[in-house]
Amino acid sequence: MEVFLTGATGLVGGEVLVNLSKRSEIEKIYCLIRAVSYENAQARLSTIFNLHNDEFNQQKVIPVLGDLFDEELTAKLICNEQLAQVTTIIHSAANTSFAKVKDDLVEKANIGGLTKILLWAKRLQSLNTFMYVGTATICGRDVKHRLVTEDETPNLNANHLVKYTYTKMQGELLLKQHLPEDKILVVRPSIIMGDSRKVEPRSPVILWALATMNKLRLVPAEQFASLDMVPVDFVANVMTQLLFVKRNYNVYHISAGNDACTSARQLAQVFDEYFDDMLPHLFVGKEMLNPLKLWAKGKLPVGHELYQHYEYLEHLKYEFEDLSNLRILFAGLDPYIEFAELGQRFDNSRIIEDLGIEPSEPGHQYIHNCLHYIERINLLEGAIDP
């Protein structure tokens, strides 16, 4: 088996790459890497393997210089003779930003970039499987507080909270336009949060929201809504295993499901025990988000009920001497709160059926492995590019 992987330096792609490199069934893994030179690309791949002290076999893991934004990418891939025997494509690369100012880039990467890969893939005579990494949250904002099955989406009538989920829905539709159904394998992770092992996570993506919640302590969100979150190592393991089993479906949620969901309250309890020198988390509901923004601007009317939480407001003044930084955090936190309020759970019965695996640990059980890392996350950097 020869594999072509995009997103190899990302959160999910990096874990998948390491997993694949350990499989004897795989002869070559070609990784699309944005780099100025072949040597630079190899150095970027080396960083992926060095993070957890995994072996980097340079004879097996081979960089292919390329960029999803390059209008000539399809032609370059077609002309690359070493890719002629690729049997499996894993398209993990994506722009995952929730920021509205990044909407154009998100669309160009997630739809334009995918199209370029597909135009090459459909010409590969040896292609058996095109694995597309989507997201379970393509179900949109109208689905609330219930279990969502794979067959419900993509739904063209779905209303999306952010451009990212819209492009992931469109990506699934593109697959069907370009490839026969028997070659398509769609995996839809739910919320990918941290790592269940005691290792350094590859990225602070989404963990940033927990780090922010931990620092704020006064949280404008619903505390008991279900959060379907899974660790990145679980996602990567499922993706890898799906390549080597008889599959009964071509779309799979990689999710916590009904039995392993968590909630903001359960996560907060873990943080309260670990950071026991801080105020306990106080959830005040999403309706307090705008008052908090006004307070940070010094414009909250006297007598507002938010002032009842004086001790927490003093905490915020102490932690954020420049309250303009607090306003930046709230702006970045907005879409995460919106997603958390939906209370969505995603059916995981297909991966349990086809792989015979146990569901992942609930988030409040494995997140303690990430707490030392969460302490070091740059909150402002994450808020500017959520």
Rank of each mutant, 00 (worst) to 15 (best):
204 P>G: 09
204 P>T: 12
168 K>I: 03
185 L>S: 00
203 S>E: 11
158 A>C: 05
194 G>H: 05
159 N>M: 08
200 E>G: 02
162 V>F: 04
165 T>G: 01
157 N>F: 09
165 T>V: 04
203 S>N: 15
194 G>D: 03
152 E>I: 00
186 V>T: 14
199 V>M: 08
174 L>P: 10
172 E>H: 10
204 P>D: 13
190 S>D: 11
166 Y>N: 12
203 S>P: 07
177 Q>Y: 05
198 K>R: 14
202 R>N: 14
153 T>G: 08
186 V>H: 03
191 I>P: 00
180 P>M: 07
206 I>N: 13
193 M>E: 10
153 T>K: 04
192 I>R: 07
194 G>F: 01
163 K>Y: 04
156 L>F: 07
161 L>P: 01
204 P>E: 08
178 H>C: 04
164 Y>R: 02
197 R>F: 13
193 M>H: 02
158 A>S: 15
196 S>R: 09
175 L>Q: 00
182 D>G: 05
192 I>K: 12
184 I>P: 06
178 H>D: 03
203 S>R: 09
205 V>F: 13
193 M>V: 11
179 L>C: 09
160 H>L: 09
170 Q>R: 14
157 N>Q: 13
199 V>K: 12
153 T>I: 10
200 E>D: 12
172 E>M: 08
199 V>W: 09
157 N>M: 11
171 G>P: 07
184 I>Q: 03
188 R>G: 10
187 V>H: 08
191 I>V: 13
184 I>Y: 09
155 N>Y: 03
191 I>D: 00
176 K>H: 15
155 N>T: 05
154 P>A: 05
177 Q>M: 05
183 K>R: 15
177 Q>A: 06
192 I>W: 07
181 E>D: 15
173 L>A: 08
174 L>C: 11
152 E>P: 01
182 D>N: 15
191 I>M: 14
160 H>I: 01
153 T>D: 08
153 T>A: 08
197 R>Y: 12
203 S>F: 04
162 V>G: 00
172 E>A: 06
186 V>Q: 01
194 G>R: 05
169 M>D: 03
203 S>L: 07
201 P>F: 01
156 L>Y: 06
158 A>V: 07
177 Q>T: 13
166 Y>A: 10
205 V>H: 04
163 K>V: 06
185 L>P: 05
203 S>Y: 00
190 S>K: 09
189 P>A: 07
186 V>C: 04
153 T>P: 01
170 Q>A: 13
206 I>S: 11
181 E>Y: 10
163 K>L: 06
181 E>T: 15
181 E>W: 03
152 E>Q: 11
206 I>D: 12
195 D>T: 14
173 L>C: 07
191 I>N: 12
